[in-house]
Amino acid sequence: MERALTLTKTTIGKKAIMALSGVAMLGFVVGHLAGNLKVFSGPEAFNEYAVWLRTVPALLWGTRLVLLAAVAAHMASAFSLWSRNRGARKNRYAKKKDLATDYAAKTMYWSGPILLFYILFHLLHLTFGGMIWTDGAALFGFEGYTWAHSNPYNNMVIGFTHWPVVVPYVLGVCALGIHLFHGIWSAFQSMGANHPRYNHLRRDLAIALAVFLTLGFLSIPAAAMMGWIEPTTQTFYYPELEPAPVTVP
């Protein structure tokens, strides 16, 4: 049977989807770090940033939908290529020497799923925490760690004083850095963005972004553990952050 060959059916098209969806997610990660570094400007600045995120619901939900689509496309392409590549060499070598590849490239199929599980944990903790631990229940059972809708600063900073929250966070951020080290360079190659004059910059950019994002995200739990940023005793009330009152019909 013969059908029209479409771009998304080719291996190169699938890699382009991975590159483009990866860039979308990378854009979010950069913005996410920029926003969360406000934690160093104090509880008020951080909480007001959280309020600001909710001022334009269309933007918030637009971003969420684009990200969900990007995650779905990235995973679907990765799975499709992974199963194809497994089938492309059914009999393995008894001896195989790697000459060029690096740790990051070889572990993409590990760092990706680790990131996925970490993001699910991260969402359950800091996005849906208020729905899971209701009515003053202690988050993860930690004494004095209760959800405050209007105080995301405390929700984050108190969490980062507990090892069981910090450990998966550190693992997730390291997986992100390793994934990006190969992913950013790989995206240029997959999209055919190469030029002898600029080629060396592709690896440099991948290293710079991976290191900057990893250290940036790690600085927050590090500061909380060292006591450089501390939970606030101030009380905050923002109607935008409080859950809508439940109306019983």
């Binding site: 291996t11 890699k15 290529l81 590549n85 089938g87 000459l99 060029a100 590849t101």
Partner: peptide, 18 residues
Amino acid sequence: MVGQMDHEGFGSCTNHGE
């Protein structure tokens, strides 16, 4: 040529450089 390459069942490029 890419269509034929895929049709033959070769894997995809993951930019390892091997």
